[in-house]
Computed example of a mutant assay.
Amino acid sequence: MEKLFSKEELDEIQKNAADNFEYYWNVVVIDGQSNEKTIKTISKHKHLVFVIGNTDTGFNHLNDRHGYFSFQNFWIQNNEMKFKLDNPSKFHPKMMPIIDYVKIADAIFCHENKNVTKNHSPDLFDKYTGVHLFEEGFQEKYHLITYKDTKIVHTMFPDKKKYNKKVRFKYGKGIVTTKLKYTPADSYNDLLVPYENKDKITVYSILIRKFYNEKVERFIIQQHDSEGNPETHYILGERDFENFESFNRETLNLFQTADLGELEDIMAQIEKSKK
């Protein structure tokens, strides 16, 4: 169930913002004892209040759902009440999360931009739709949602999905990991790209394994059982290597952020063949 701020919590946040305005104004506060209601910043011009929040509201929700480098998956129910992978609009990849988000919110928060026709929850929120002009000369349209009759930010997101990767597969890419095993009998280095369902159980994965004893690297797609354990392997190819190669942070980040569309198409075909 969605966890939004209650009237009492909103009152508490507003009182904190008013009593400690100079402390939060136009700075980013890092608090080692923060909670959902902790204020991160108050914007320079419109005095919008950004709180840490949770997965459903506030800065954490905004950044996890719409930040370009967020790797969380979100799921929605379709008309048949079945869950499908959502693809919420993403911010420009060069944006600095809290810094640029605040600038955009300040730019579009005004009475002229209040959007009353496309506000799906007018009893809970106020919605503002406007255009922000960047220093580089381009402009983009955004939607800002604040708690009703307050300046507390619920969320904000781009109008278009111009920075989104195309969704080709019904499961969401999880966190890419590496594993190293080194014994005289069996030595290898793995890079694993999991694809998860709504319950965060791995259904498919891309496995690149360097077999050190054989000096061979194999590219594998794995199909997992209902508990997330690999049960079927599809070897796509292999290559020889010399010396002691291993997966580094750069390779890890590459597979985390890259569009793996061709491999996702293969997994989609495997999934389709099961039916």
Rank of each mutant, 00 (worst) to 15 (best):
K173T: 01
F247H: 06
S89H: 07
V203Q: 05
N79G: 14
I221V: 04
I201L: 06
N26T: 14
H45T: 11
M156E: 02
I220H: 03
N78W: 01
V51N: 04
F109S: 09
Q72F: 08
F71C: 03
E2C: 08
N213T: 06
N16P: 02
T129Y: 06
W25N: 15
F244D: 14
D126C: 09
G261A: 00
V176A: 06
A268F: 07
P230D: 01
H92T: 00
V193W: 04
V131L: 05
D56Q: 01
D240A: 11
F91T: 01
D31E: 14
Q222M: 07
D100L: 02
V131R: 11
V216S: 01
A17M: 06
P184N: 13
K161P: 05
H111P: 04
S187D: 07
S89K: 04
I208M: 11
Y204T: 05
N20W: 07
D159E: 14
A18M: 12
K15N: 10
Y204Q: 03
F255E: 04
D186E: 13
K274S: 08
N87C: 02
I30P: 09
L260N: 01
F69A: 13
I235A: 10
M96F: 08
G228K: 00
F244Q: 14
Y147N: 00
T178N: 12
I108M: 05
K127V: 14
K141L: 08
F21W: 10
Q72R: 13
I201Q: 08
Y204W: 03
G53M: 00
T202A: 05
V27P: 10
T155R: 07
E36I: 15
S43K: 03
N26W: 13
F138A: 02
H233K: 14
T251S: 14
K173P: 02
K272C: 06
P230H: 03
L4I: 12
T202P: 03
I108H: 04
S70Y: 05
S246I: 09
I39L: 08
F5G: 08
L207A: 00
M96W: 06
G228V: 01
M1F: 08
E136Y: 10
